[in-house]
Design a protein around this nucleic acid. Sequence first.
DNA 1: CGACCACCTGAGGAACCGCTGAGCAGTCCT
DNA 2: AGGACTGCTCAGCGGTTCCTCAGGTGGTCG
Lengths: 225, 225
Amino acid sequence: MRVLVVEDEKRLAAGLKKGLEAEGLAVDIALNGTDGLWMATENPYDVIVLDIMLPGMSGFKVCAALREAGNWTPILMLTAKSGELDEAEALDTGADDYLTKPFSYVVLVAHIRALLRRGGRERPTVLQAGDLRMDPASRQTWRGETEINLTPRELAMLEFFLRRRGEVVSKREILDHVWDYDFEGDPNIVEVYVRGLRNKFDRPFDREAIETIRGSGYRLAADGG
Amino acid sequence: MRVLVVEDEKRLAAGLKKGLEAEGLAVDIALNGTDGLWMATENPYDVIVLDIMLPGMSGFKVCAALREAGNWTPILMLTAKSGELDEAEALDTGADDYLTKPFSYVVLVAHIRALLRRGGRERPTVLQAGDLRMDPASRQTWRGETEINLTPRELAMLEFFLRRRGEVVSKREILDHVWDYDFEGDPNIVEVYVRGLRNKFDRPFDREAIETIRGSGYRLAADGG
DNA sequence: CGACCACCTGAGGAACCGCTGAGCAGTCCT
DNA sequence: AGGACTGCTCAGCGGTTCCTCAGGTGGTCG
């Protein structure tokens, strides 16, 4: 699965590359519209993530040019604000989906996977660690046979843990992936949500799935605790 | 099942491609009449969706040219407004069916399926989820043995739910598929209709078929609740 | 042993989201 | 013309969710 990211903010572009590669996707980056258009025409991608505000050639134009040339690769547009103008224009020029900045990686990846699924090929994904099971498409989670009810934020966080199961993930990483990339609140929020998850599927089952690694972060046991 | 869509509005074209592919159809797109004619003569399609207002060569002309050349692939014409002139002319030039803009995906897909069925191959479809049953062709719906009376909009919405049963579908997706593609009203309408469906076939039967997934959308239980 | 630091916990307020009932316009049927 | 039905809008409500904050707990190190 190859993804092209056309984004001029270098920090964001690098972050996206890193994050998406962690999801098992092959990522190329273009830092302006002209390069993006060229790369998209020269290589076959499965999804294109396209910022609107770009130096040289706007995302709208890149999108329109691709469609004009008969290239119907799914395009996910990144719009600056929740101005419905942008949204409408994005879809007008032939984009398949859009996302309003700022967004979180987990949400971005979810949208990308939805687009890939539309293309038809992708197999249904079920994340699992021991007796912990999660279907991101239906947004359902089970511990053993019991279904667990999670809030959106809890779900995003558990999904992140599951994709990195067995690894130690720092609070900073969790914040960067699960919260909007410009979140600037109290990092304590991570502790609060870890506690929420533990209450929902550790305590009732008397099994410890999420370990605290003091000074480093948290780890979801690869075998589910 | 291969479908050719000849449509110059990029947003609409992209939307159609996305929607029809979700229905399991293989979709090609032509952005003007000349390309459309060429693609239609070069490749075997099962249905051609043909806009009338096209740059270069009108849908009428494309249709006439195809018929002239002995190509009798079913053609579904998209007419701009409910001017009966268009409708009559569409059928005159050899179209098999027409649809007035704006329309919704569900309606479009229904018409396409009707054309395919006329072509002979497709098997009759009955959608089912647990004790919930629907025959889109006869527009009938049952819960268990009891027939449920649905309004057209309710029917379209339930059909969409049934085709995506078990998955979480966002309000946006529902709007995009069940309502006309240029609908720009309050998304709250989806909630109103979900409530209508629940009143008709959840409440009387005391079974919850449509779940609310707060912050994400709705899900029709794969087993019908 | 005591101080500090990282993490945990409970409470609470604000924002958000979905639900609901009322009401209105348009259409179809009688 | 009148009535039933359908499709849609709107505003208010109530619960959920998100986040903050202040204090508690336990590990670690001087």
